[in-house]
Design a protein around this nucleic acid. Sequence first.
DNA 1: ATTCTGCACTATTTCTACAAGAGTGCAAAA
DNA 2: TTTTGCACTCTTGTAGAAATAGTGCAGAAT
Lengths: 212, 212
Amino acid sequence: MLPCPFSPGGPLTKREQTWLRIVRAAQALCLDRGFDGFTLDELAEASDVSRRTLFNYFPSKVDAVLGGGETPDLLHPDPRQPHLVEATELFRRGGPHGRLLEDLTALSRVLVDGAHPDRSLARSQRAILFATPRLLGEVHERFLAAAGTLVALVREREPELDEGRGRLFVRLLVAVFDNAVETWVEQPDDDPRTLADVFETHLEDAVHLLHP
Amino acid sequence: MLPCPFSPGGPLTKREQTWLRIVRAAQALCLDRGFDGFTLDELAEASDVSRRTLFNYFPSKVDAVLGGGETPDLLHPDPRQPHLVEATELFRRGGPHGRLLEDLTALSRVLVDGAHPDRSLARSQRAILFATPRLLGEVHERFLAAAGTLVALVREREPELDEGRGRLFVRLLVAVFDNAVETWVEQPDDDPRTLADVFETHLEDAVHLLHP
DNA sequence: ATTCTGCACTATTTCTACAAGAGTGCAAAA
DNA sequence: TTTTGCACTCTTGTAGAAATAGTGCAGAAT
């Protein structure tokens, strides 16, 4: 029932327009009054749909403000998100390069960027996260869940990676991600780097730091 | 005013005896009734000191239960803990081996083991952490603080490590530590590995996972 | 001389009940 | 097929009171 954030290319469908209208209103309200400073009734009014319809688009207030879809499950990617299906299939077959870390980086990029269908949304998202540290926790949780499925996928490709190491791997990825988010959120407004860019840089940094 | 957990070797001083009595009582109460199931008045009575004296030994209830001293500052180590002073001095001068990762492992060991002066304490600590997940958060915070000073020390030795990477490094260490704690806590009761052992193993695992 | 203790104090936390808002199920309307 | 209204549950915030955590200090005890 919940839609993917955007179908690529072409004019926006009616549903996509409504989706955008809601997110924009939610972000405006959030920037204006803070996350707890507005109710869903107000958001419904501001975006010109019924309160009930909001939940037709977003499972929660947080999702509306963050403009996120469901957290992707890379093990069983949603067929409505063909780029996800494609990327995971490629990875399963030995990834774009054949070296785990690089392939993982590529896959992470798909994952991280999935939350940012639109440049202008990304920008206000940054402002909101900056103003509402509480939401950082939510972002963390979402990535944590996604990273779990990511590592599950890795373990299919690399069976010698046992569960314990998999868990550790998740934690490392999440640590890099959290750091990337923190950096990205504090970035000056005209810095063009996306969250995925920063994540990739930090992942490389992590590799160097732990290089024997 | 607060003492180091133990002076090495020899018979226990009066202060050390009292320290132990308090910790034992605190752990017993905690295992028996849960962390929130007893008051400091009760702990005072059980360990035969006045309530006020408890705070002479531990800055908080959590510290009493965990049997921890202050979180060590590796940049300015407490002179009353000579092994810390020694280890940091050695590290500053180029560490035991001269390779950052190995020296870091050695230093981390000192840090992690510092919280476990005694085998039997470590064992009940494990049981308590298992039964009271809430305390895991406290343990995390303590290590986070300590890791901060650890990385500050590293940055003195390796000036090309900028602040951003330092922050990332802290996060990675904390991730490894959290994973180690989780593993250690779930360990069967007769498993002789200390937390520091597990931490070291996981740090090595992390290095391999991020090996290009 | 140092550590312990009682006591008076402040600061958090917990509890209760209640209100407000988040989130769901369903059937009729668009 | 999507939207909407409505009735519903569940979680979270609020306010005030009680319990408990934690502090400062001066005198007692060792």
